[in-house]
Design a protein around this nucleic acid. Structure first.
Lengths: 203, 203
DNA sequence: GTCTATATGTTGATAGAC
DNA sequence: GTCTATCAACATATAGAC
């Protein structure tokens, strides 16, 4: 059944574009509205194309999520990989992991933000969550090494310290904006200073 | 049009129950699956009733969210209200706000968790977000008073410190569990110790 | 590689019996 | 206050023209 010519909406035909460009727009919308609340029609509107056009690039909505989460997880894993078997005092390696994580988080803010919001509804999400937990476990081991070496205070529960440190870094996604009033280096330095020495003046 | 008797599913008729009981179940499911991913049918299954039965208690899905968010926001506001015009050094009032927030967060964990995940898609969500921002602003003022009094280190950006402190407390919802291995008092003490003095041993 | 049109399932919500 | 039955809207996804 053909439509009558009068029924056609004058939707202009857009240039072809890459998966990379598509993903940038998609992730922005996923964060803004939430993954589940975002429809393929929303994505079509945001990209200035049609749903069918998106389906030409990817298998579906969950595939888009999968691509986005992989990027974030890969970047974070690389940071830990560098320091996990590194040299130097445990507390210094820990600091480098924190600094590296902050840098990744800032550089890949939308992707990491999306990763941190995943709840495990689907297989794709559960896989990403499992890789996050692996990151957590290895960071925890580093904290315990630092405590054993007397470089981190021993009067606090190591597991709680790990969680708090982790939470401190991850909380950046809730407020840090690249075009905001805080520079990435200042935020990184303030966060490390806060984590190591706290809010109270020393002396 | 009546169904044939054979088509009827043998769904047992359940006892009446209160809005309070309903809300507890609903919030648990909202957190588990995410608000948008949760269907009214999911809620019906979780409560052991039917969709229609739920609609008898509330106007709809968003009404359930509204009730849940109000509870969290009210509890957090009460904590700040106690200390905002309180007596004592700013840093001590700040510590009491942090301790009070942790206690509320632990006592009302599912409700606060839900609040912290809201993105502002609807009017109900935007209202809750605005009340959160108000909380943030007043906490920020308290931090600045403490810095002005020389009770909090002045070499860090006050706004960044506020965000980090806020993020530290809120990150509890990501891992704290009432039936877990950490007692609420220990977590509260460790968090305050971490925030005030950091991870590094003093002396 | 984009488009229009459509198939097919699920959603939030309501009507009305019991 | 619970239930069964139903709806209109919207969801993901696909077919096939250009």
């Amino acid at each position: 059944m053909h439509p009558s010519p009068a029924a056609r909406v004058d939707r202009p035909r857009r240039e072809a574009y890459s998966l990379e460009e598509l993903l940038d727009v998609v992730v922005r919308v996923f964060i803004e509205r939430g993954y589940d609340a975002t429809s393929m029609e929303d994505l079509a509107r945001a990209t200035g194309r049609t749903k069918s056009s998106i389906y030409h690039h990817v298998h579906g909505k969950e595939h888009l999520l999968s691509l986005a989460l992989s990027r974030a997880v890969d970047a974070l894993s690389a940071v830990l990989e560098e320091q996990a078997v590194g040299e130097g005092r445990p507390v210094d390696r820990l600091e480098r992991v924190v600094r590296g994580s902050v840098q990744v988080l800032v550089a890949q803010l939308p992707y990491v933000t999306l990763l941190l919001r995943v709840r495990g509804n689907t297989e794709v999400e559960r896989e990403a969550l499992e890789r996050r937990r692996s990151f957590d476990r290895r960071l925890s081991a580093l904290v315990e090494q630092a405590i054993a070496a007397g470089e981190v205070r021993a009067d606090l529960d190591p597991r709680v310290v790990t969680r708090l440190l982790f939470g401190l870094v991850n909380s950046l996604t809730e407020w840090y904006r690249p075009d905001g009033e805080h520079g990435p280096q200042d935020v990184e330095d303030d966060l490390v200073a806060f984590a190591l020495d706290g809010m109270r003046p020393r002396g």
